[in-house]
Computed example of a mutant assay.
Amino acid sequence: MKIVAISGSIVGSKTRTAMDYTLSAAREKYADADIVLLDLAEYNLVFSDGRNYREYVGDTKFVTETIMNADAIIIGTPTFQASIPATLKNIFDLLPVNALRDKVVSILVTAGTAKHYLMAELQLKPILAYMKAHIVPAYVFIEEKDFNRKEIVNDDVLFRIGRLVEDTVMLVDAFANVRQLKEAEYDF
Rank of each mutant, 00 (worst) to 15 (best):
Leu158Gln: 09
Phe147Val: 08
Glu143Ile: 06
Asp93Leu: 03
Met131Asp: 07
Val57Glu: 13
Tyr21Cys: 11
Tyr53Thr: 01
Tyr43Val: 02
Glu151Thr: 12
Leu38Gln: 09
Gly112Thr: 14
Leu164Arg: 12
Glu42Val: 00
Tyr43Asn: 06
Ala5Pro: 00
Asp155Phe: 03
Leu118Gly: 06
Ala31Asn: 13
Ile73Val: 13
Ala86Val: 11
Gly162Cys: 13
Lys89Tyr: 13
Thr113Tyr: 13
Glu65Asp: 09
Ile35Trp: 06
Thr79Ser: 01
Ile74Gly: 04
Ala111Val: 09
Arg149Val: 10
Gly76Leu: 04
Asp71Pro: 06
Gln81Trp: 08
Gly50Lys: 02
Ser13Phe: 00
Met68Ile: 11
Glu65Cys: 01
Ser7Tyr: 01
Val105Phe: 08
Asp34Phe: 05
Ala114Phe: 10
Asp173Pro: 05
Asp39Cys: 04
Ile6Glu: 02
Met19Pro: 03
His116Asp: 13
Lys103Cys: 10
Lys132Ser: 14
Thr87Val: 14
Ile84Trp: 10
Ile6Ser: 00
Gln123Lys: 15
Ile35Gly: 05
Tyr21Thr: 04
Asn44Arg: 15
Glu143Cys: 11
Met170Cys: 12
Ile67Trp: 11
Asn177Arg: 15
Ala111Phe: 06
Met19Leu: 12
Met19Trp: 04
Pro126Phe: 06
Leu37His: 11
Asp59Cys: 06
Val104Cys: 02
Gly58Ser: 01
Met131His: 02
Gly58Arg: 03
Met19Ser: 00
Lys125Ile: 15
Tyr53Cys: 09
Met119Arg: 02
Met170Gly: 01
Ile142Phe: 15
Ala120Gln: 11
Ser9Gly: 01
Tyr21Val: 02
Val63Lys: 00
Val46Met: 06
Asn44Cys: 03
Ser9Val: 01
Ala25Ile: 03
Ala25Pro: 09
Asp173Ile: 15
Tyr43Leu: 04
Asp167Ile: 07
Arg163Leu: 13
Pro126Asn: 08
Ile6Arg: 00
Ala174Gly: 07
Ser9Ile: 05
Leu124Phe: 09
Leu45Asp: 05
Phe188Cys: 07
Ala133Met: 10
Arg160Asn: 09
Asp59Trp: 00
Leu108Pro: 09
Ser9Leu: 00
Ile84Pro: 07
Val178Trp: 06
Ala18Pro: 02
Glu144Lys: 15
Tyr30Ala: 08
